[in-house]
């Protein structure tokens, strides 16, 4: 007796069913961080972009932790605020490498996709700030510098990271961005060296308080530059798009 399978019902697309099944088999389930981010951001695309931030991969986080751990040892040994000095360094480099060519090997394709660059940049920068702040706070707990933590390194961390990001966005080079931010920070540090023969001499409450308006202004200006530089077609700033008819 010959048997023959019945044809599928006409309203069922077998190809689509097959692809859904194979897709589920081949897919890697997102981790809890990505699932949480997708719920908070209400966008699986932004959540995926967040967890693929170049400066949030495990190796990078471990390196940042090691740098600050070193700062803890040196701070405790010398009684000088090395953790507040190193915390902005780690953040400046981390923020410079959140996005763009030089940080992303698939940048040429990524830049042609629909997800707005500005949103990706914002989400990644906030994530890097928060991560670096948490690591630096954790390091500060093991030093005698816990008292003035906000004034000592959070202000320069935010201000100089935004300046580095502005340079990186404007030049489309994370290396140039990081170098610019670090150069400014080291210039400030050299003043302490020349005045008191101590590179961390400027990392004191009265100095940081005096420079707070400068850091705030730098953050605002840098933020404007970043927003202008991350709109429109790549290589084109908001100003260029407004001039172009």
């Amino acid at each position: 007796m010959r048997t023959q399978s019945a044809p599928p019902p006409p309203d069922i697309d077998l190809d689509r069913v097959w692809h859904r099944v194979t897709g589920d088999i081949w897919a890697t389930e997102p981790g809890w961080i990505e699932r949480t981010a997708a719920r908070l951001l209400r966008s699986p695309a932004l959540a995926r972009a967040l967890v693929t931030t170049p400066s949030l991969v495990l190796a990078w986080l471990l390196a940042s932790g090691l740098v600050l751990l070193l700062g803890v040892f040196v701070t405790n040994a010398t009684d000088q605020p090395w953790v507040p000095f190193l915390a902005p360094v780690v953040a400046i480099v981390g923020v410079s490498f959140v996005y763009g060519s030089g940080a992303d090997p698939a940048w040429e394709i990524v830049r042609t996709t629909a997800l707005p660059r500005r949103m990706v940049l914002l989400v990644r920068v906030v994530a890097v700030f928060v991560t670096n702040t948490v690591i630096a706070l954790a390091a500060s707990v093991f030093t005698p510098m816990m008292g003035s933590v906000v004034m000592l390194w959070l202000l320069p961390l935010v201000g100089l990271s935004m300046v580095a990001l502005a340079f990186a966005t404007w030049t489309q080079s994370p290396v140039f961005g990081a170098a610019s931010g670090l150069a400014i920070w080291l210039t400030i540090a050299l003043q302490g060296l020349t005045r008191a023969n101590d590179v961390t001499a400027f990392v004191h409450e009265d100095v940081i308080t005096g420079m707070a308006p400068l850091y705030a202004a730098a953050t605002l200006v840098a933020g404007v530059v970043v927003m202008m530089g991350s709109s429109g077609m790549p290589g084109q700033t908001r100003w260029e798009s407004m001039r172009w008819s």
Binding site: G23, W26, A27, R48, I109, V110, T113, A114
Partner: peptide
């Protein structure tokens, strides 16, 4: 699969269709 899925998401494809489209 992850690589192609990443770009499908960046292209703002409907999340419900991404896996079958990638497959």
């Amino acid at each position: 699969f992850e690589f192609i899925e990443y770009f499908a998401l960046l292209k703002e494809m409907s999340p419900k269709q991404v896996r079958s489209a990638v497959a």
